[in-house]
């Protein structure tokens, strides 16, 4: 597994890209490589992280401009091969804006920027992104626009296909149906608002994020 390389996409305004290197390389010994968003060359990369931050200043809507980056255009073929993509926070917003995942992320119900640990329930085992021996996780969130919104039909589709990854226990931001993360039908694309890369060392408050990042090594 030592040749496995996780590509971390860097947009103007990304700010969790280096945290992700620390988590993957420092805590898990997984090789990483930064990929500038204007590159569409993702050969030699085995899975991809769209990190958190404020790509393009969150102008217009979070993720709305980033979705037109050449790298996002080439992501479709990458996903079809079964290789894995995780979008965290702003990365999740980019995945919904670009249509890889359903729904949208918008302003928190209480208008607060919420920076806190949050308790989450693991809903799906599809894709094996979470430790199925646990039902719950504690991961930090840090967002002002993390309220997941979807209509009833989309929710039904998500439920019927077992695509809801995580739900908040206390729904801090007003998300539809308490949804904190979703996956695609194939199970190889995960988007979530909580930050697993900030929960990879117990001395920093918890290590519930390790399993999810380690699962980037799998193939769907």
């Amino acid at each position: 597994m030592s040749d496995f390389i996780v590509g971390i996409v860097v947009f103007p305004g990304s700010n969790c890209d280096r945290d992700m290197v620390w988590a993957l390389e420092g805590c898990l010994g997984i090789k990483t490589k930064f990929i500038w968003h204007e590159s569409s060359d993702i050969t030699g990369v085995d899975s991809i992280v769209l990190p958190g931050g404020f790509s393009f200043g969150d102008y217009l809507r979070c993720g709305a401009v980033a979705r037109f980056s050449p790298l996002i255009n080439s992501l479709n073929d990458f996903v079809k091969t079964g290789r894995r993509v995780i979008g965290i926070c702003n990365g999740f917003q980019i995945l919904t804006e670009s249509g890889f995942l359903p729904g949208v992320l918008t302003t928190n119900k209480n208008l607060d920027f919420i920076c806190n640990d949050t308790e989450l329930e693991i809903i799906t085992s599809k894709g094996n992104w979470f430790n199925s021996s646990n039902n719950k996780l504690k991961l930090p969130i840090a967002h002002g626009e993390g309220r997941y919104f979807c209509d009833e039909d989309t929710f039904k589709e998500l439920s019927d296909n077992d695509l809801i990854a995580l739900r908040y226990l206390n729904n801090p931001n007003g998300s539809s149906y308490d949804i904190a993360g979703v996956i695609n039908k194939k199970g190889n694309v995960l988007g979530l608002m909580p930050h697993p890369e900030r929960a990879c060392d117990s001395s920093l408050g918890g290590n519930d994020g390790l399993f999810t990042l380690k699962s980037l090594l799998e193939f769907s």
Binding site: L60, A64, F68, T96, E97, V104, T106, F149, C150, T154
Partner: peptide, 8 residues
Amino acid sequence: RLFANKVI
């Protein structure tokens, strides 16, 4: 495709 997200 750009100005509006028709989900919301």
